[in-house]
Design a protein around this nucleic acid. Structure first.
Lengths: 336, 336
DNA sequence: CTGAAAGCGCTTACAG
DNA sequence: CTGAAAGCGCTTACAG
């Protein structure tokens, strides 16, 4: 039952021409190479009838490219990454490129393995939300002249294209909003990762407090360990909420922390109302459906995807090194 | 700045051995081939120092396999698929396989293109949540002897491995639960796709009504067009809710329909309480966080992923055709 | 207008 | 104990 796929050789034989001719026709060079219309027609008919598809592995080995773009993110099940992935996929598809993706779990070792995997598959370009520690591997890609765009996570040591949001400003906006609406005891719930994005989210928050003359000990900053299970996180948050009953506003630095946070609030029988405000990073259905609705800092997903793809194809299209661009987009505070 | 990666030839030259020897060492056949410990050490050191990684494209071309498993789903941004993808990725990774994935948007044409893409990249095995109309392409894979497992969507014409839930029974359970708790005017909100999964979800619902002696005209079945935007769906649902004010229980046949449904309910100022019950397919944070919490039919994600992977590796491990298995797992009704 | 041949980087049967 | 050589399926410079 096992049918072998036909090769260019089979087609050439059936059409009574050389494989060179078939290859030219396949690659749209038939006219340029002055192949007669009759031959073109004959070969194309045979290709059609056989259902012949060129072996891309052989093509990649020969040409050194693959028309594949590698996408490396922390966790593809995270809606932010899944959403971006889907948009990138759409946009790349239109240009004849496919996206190959995989998750790093925020481990440098896995990032490194993935980059090597992609390299060994001749992936043409890389879109990476990098784990800390991946600097060397990414620098390696740049040295080889591969198009690279980082997003979401910023690695200050690297001189490479980047697309992300202004995290400092986003947190600042959120905290300022709390303060303007009369909140006195603000909390930030964040994660204990030493990455720029997270550090900026904290810095913007702190800056707003300082500006408003709120003293350090009036606010709470809780750093949830990265590897925590949801249950552990909820427990930690319940603890914080009861230890600091005065808290009247909470900014959650990530989507999943906000979800755990809402569950924790539910558990302590507190309610979100005029005495307790909440803002979460990254909007989602979950916040729109919550009662009451939860305010959110929305990342411009479409624009992030557009900028990434634009930069990738700019590099793919030119043999020259293209100007390195660091794009910082504003997040939007959606008040509900 | 552009460094070329080294090849097996470079390593052989530096080590003063043939490429055959390097290849044997690379593939763990050094001992079997009686290569001296000294040579092994010398070659391995050079490989290490050079950071040499074998070109997988060349290897694939030669061996015909790739250690890649293709995963084809409707939409990777759908949490059900993203979750499964992540689990499959983990499990495959442990066995030295990578997952390559892409979305079909439920179009047979895109499914077909993806299958061809994967074929031309020598993908070793296929995991597919198939769009209707993809039968011929999938049959093609089976004819070529490729390991294939379908999931989520069932294609009755094909004799192929499948893992999914008992949709008939799940809907039946949900409707029965409504009836037992005294509901009289049940609604099913489903999508207008002619796929088995969806048809079973309707049939199970209808069957429970018939069993309970509830007449057709006392219940409502709304089929939302597949391509609808969320806004259109909400409008449709708002229309239904006001046209049938007696409805006291709603089963949503998909996750995204439930989300639109909750938004529609919110919009009509109705509330979910003892007068209006809701059950949704596929559990998620959103239902746990909703006030009140929403009951759900939970698919056993872990088990689905496990069964798929088990079947894939069973086939990958043997040259013989393996027994075809259709696994139907129960969904779990989580009452809240 | 078309073809023979080299080569991309590997693996492996064969030979010694 | 190790190597020369064929071949996987393509592309393309060169030749005629």
């Amino acid at each position: 039952m096992s049918t072998k796929a036909s090769s260019i050789k089979d087609i050439a034989k059936k059409a009574n021409v050389s494989i060179t001719t078939v290859s030219f026709i396949l690659n749209g060079k038939a006219v340029e190479k002055n192949i007669s219309a009759a031959v073109i027609k004959r070969v194309e008919d045979i290709i059609e009838a056989d259902g012949y598809k060129p072996n891309q592995v052989a093509r990649s080995l020969r040409t050194g490219n693959s028309h594949i773009i590698g996408l490396i993110v922390e966790d593809i099940a995270n809606p932010f990454f899944a959403g971006i992935a889907r948009m990138l996929e759409d946009r790349a598809y239109k240009k004849g490129y496919k996206i190959l993706y995989s998750s790093t779990e925020n481990k440098a070792s896995k990032t490194s393995e993935l980059i090597n995997l992609f390299k060994s598959r001749q992936v043409d370009a890389y879109i990476i939300a990098p784990a800390l520690g991946a600097e060397k591997d990414i620098q390696g890609l740049i040295n080889e002249g591969k198009p690279v765009v980082l997003f979401d996570r910023y690695l200050p040591e690297l001189d490479v294209n980047y697309v992300g949001i202004d995290n400092f400003d986003a947190s600042h906006q959120a905290a300022e909003n709390f303060i303007e609406s009369g909140k006195k005891h603000l909390a930030l719930v964040t994660v204990d990762l030493e990455i720029e994005q997270i550090k900026d989210r904290e810095a913007g928050f702190r800056h707003a407090l300082t500006e408003a003359g709120i003293k350090e000990d009036q606010s709470v900053i809780l750093k949830v360990p990265f590897g925590n299970t949801r249950e552990e996180t909820i427990e930690l948050l319940v603890g914080m909420l009861s230890a600091h009953p005065k808290i009247d506003a909470i900014l959650f630095a990530t989507n999943y922390l906000a979800i755990s946070g809402l569950l924790a609030i539910k558990k302590t029988k507190k309610v979100i109302n005029k005495h307790l405000s909440v803002i979460a990073y990254d909007d989602g259905d979950i916040f729109k459906l919550h009662t009451p609705q939860i305010s959110a800092l929305e990342q411009p997903l479409e624009e992030i995807a557009d900028r990434i793809i634009k930069k990738i194809f700019e590099q793919l299209g030119s043999k020259m090194p293209v100007t390195i661009e660091k794009t910082i987009l504003p997040a939007k505070l959606l008040l509900r």
